[in-house]
Nucleic acid binder design. Sequence first.
DNA 1: CGGCTTCAGCTA
DNA 2: TAGCTGAAGCCG
Length: 268
Amino acid sequence: MIKFRAVFASLLAACSLQASAVLAASPASAAVAASCPSHYLDGRPPEIRNPKLAAATRPLCFSEFGVMHSGVTRTALWSAEHLAADQVVAAQGLDRDNAFHPEPRLPRGQRAELSDYARSGFDRGHLAPNGDMPDRTAQRESFSLANMVPQDRDHNRHIWAPIEGAVRKMAKKEGELYVITGPAFLGSSLRRVGNVIVPSHLYKVVYSPRQKAGAAWFVENRSDAPIQVIPVAELERILGIELLPSLNQRQKERMLALPKIRQKKSRY
DNA sequence: CGGCTTCAGCTA
DNA sequence: TAGCTGAAGCCG
């Protein structure tokens, strides 16, 4: 059983200046105007329950995924995809073309810049993965810094990459999946790279319509972190975000079997 | 066991 | 933007 307390007070304490500065710039109506239902289970995007997380948020739609961006953390709070089998096949026929760029739809005072990440020691880690993108347009969109978080190198390459591969494999088997990926900012010692807050954890929710079941990976943002698999309901409590609002509590407890991810032994 | 894939950073 | 570098899981 996990006993994380969702301590977002520290996040706000670390960023109070930015938070107050950007609050006025984010009308709540923007959230409605820019919803993109096709990326979400039953057309319903996640709902932020922890008010502290809601500061300076704005939804952004991309062709193959939708994000909720935070001007406080200068990252997304989630990135959501409807991942279909044929899309995965198309994506796997496309070579990678790195094109990291700041998100032009975001005001400069809220968005991450390439300079925030440069020589930081952290990877620019995709939330919605490049490897899921079926065409050049979607691929380029996935390289928006609005779809990135500062991620530990080894975590990204040796924990997250195999998880992403497992999700694509599962999507081909299940026919379709809904996938939501994002950061968590827990604890009292959050650090930052430039103006971007470094998440303490990353999560990835997978929901299979065919099995009517879901589950989530939840892993600390460091190398050699243990890979935890938890129910959607538990992740929602940890985050203070209702990720799959069209499901009832019982449905959120119904576990989808996720593939086992192998991990290198720790160096001891 | 070796090639393939996937995640990238850095430099010019 | 192109080119070079690198590690490790996956898979046949």
